[in-house]
Design a protein around this nucleic acid. Sequence first.
DNA 1: AGGAATTTGTGCGTATGTATC
DNA 2: AGATACATACGCACAAATTCC
Lengths: 233, 233
Amino acid sequence: MRSEANALPKYIQASETLIRDIVAGRLRDGERLAPERDMAADMGIAVGTLRKALGELEQRGLIERIQGSGNYIRHQPDTSGVYALFRLERIDGGGLPSADLYEVSKVEKPADLPRFGSSTMAHRIRRLRRLSAEPIALEEIWLDAKWADTIDPKRLSESLYLFYRRSLNLWITRAEDRIGIAPMPDWGRSLGVFRDGMAGFVERFGETDTGEVAEYSRTWFNSDRARYVSRIR
Amino acid sequence: MRSEANALPKYIQASETLIRDIVAGRLRDGERLAPERDMAADMGIAVGTLRKALGELEQRGLIERIQGSGNYIRHQPDTSGVYALFRLERIDGGGLPSADLYEVSKVEKPADLPRFGSSTMAHRIRRLRRLSAEPIALEEIWLDAKWADTIDPKRLSESLYLFYRRSLNLWITRAEDRIGIAPMPDWGRSLGVFRDGMAGFVERFGETDTGEVAEYSRTWFNSDRARYVSRIR
DNA sequence: AGGAATTTGTGCGTATGTATC
DNA sequence: AGATACATACGCACAAATTCC
């Protein structure tokens, strides 16, 4: 029973409203939501419909539902949120991620680059990755030129995905990583990440909500100091 | 409203009944289930309750629900379902997984093994992993002895996780993988997986629904032939 | 081709169980 | 122990997609 033709189901409208409120920061981490009956009344929908929406949020890990207590926001914007896509950690556990910018340039996509995106040009970003100050990886990101004419290196100080969202309105929501072994790249010598020899190697294809591949990146990490972590399900 | 004290919710009873029927093969792949109203009547529960159970099955990928048509079994016992946790693929893409059993033994957990599970003993399973017949990895699985007194190698022919479920009633639903580089193990020489040198290395902690770590495994894979793939979000 | 029958999807309201405060 | 709040369960009505005749 939909109020308007062609409208999305109410439970999806409700969940998307709540998701926007959470990621926009209007609802803060740890905060308790209003009781389900009150929220449902406010939104003009039935409790069962709202509960279906809350179920979606729970699945995404945005809220925790505790019987007899309430529904609580679970959203750490600076760890799980922005760094959700960063999968390297120190062998001795954890570590706070940071990055030194090393190069930003706009170039023709080289022939040996995997195909992605629609433009023939791409921005190439090279960074030195650190975990708790220790250099652990070299990173080379290729951003399809479709998403930006130019990139101001001054604005790249923080998380790259944060920059994508804030400055380019580009939301990378999915990624496919392929992990293997490869020799470290020429441009990375003398940066103190590796002594020599082989490195852990991560290829990433970053996708938007629509499945478009906007970004391709390669990361070489020192497997003596760091490893790639994947949590499944 | 539960018919008996301490009983599981009806929707969980219903979903578990259906799951058993599917994995036991009583319901075959592609088969259409009876209409929801009929099934609910047969099981003596309300349609909404049954639908919640069917939602669980859909999430696990065991059925496909098509509006206006019906609910269909989707269960490829040896591909997507059981191998959902297998993350290696050939560099040239895909490949059908199989395994040769190499050793099964019950041993005291060595001191250098990471801590997991409650028992001091563990079953050690060593396998050669293939993708489309080509050897690509060595695998060493440590299953906490809590879950089985003995393991019959004859029953280990197929998927390990299928064996866990069917024979041990153990459901591995989550895992944490850590990927790096390591030298291949001594016991793996002469199995034709590697020429020499370093291998991709995957450590896995397999968890049950309750978060208990039941299994720890190490996999060494030939990075010339295979890579680890992680799809995010 | 088209309409009727079938089947799943959405939405509502209500009653009761159970965990938390 | 009582109040509050989420969880389970039921039944019904209508919408939307598919199938059948």
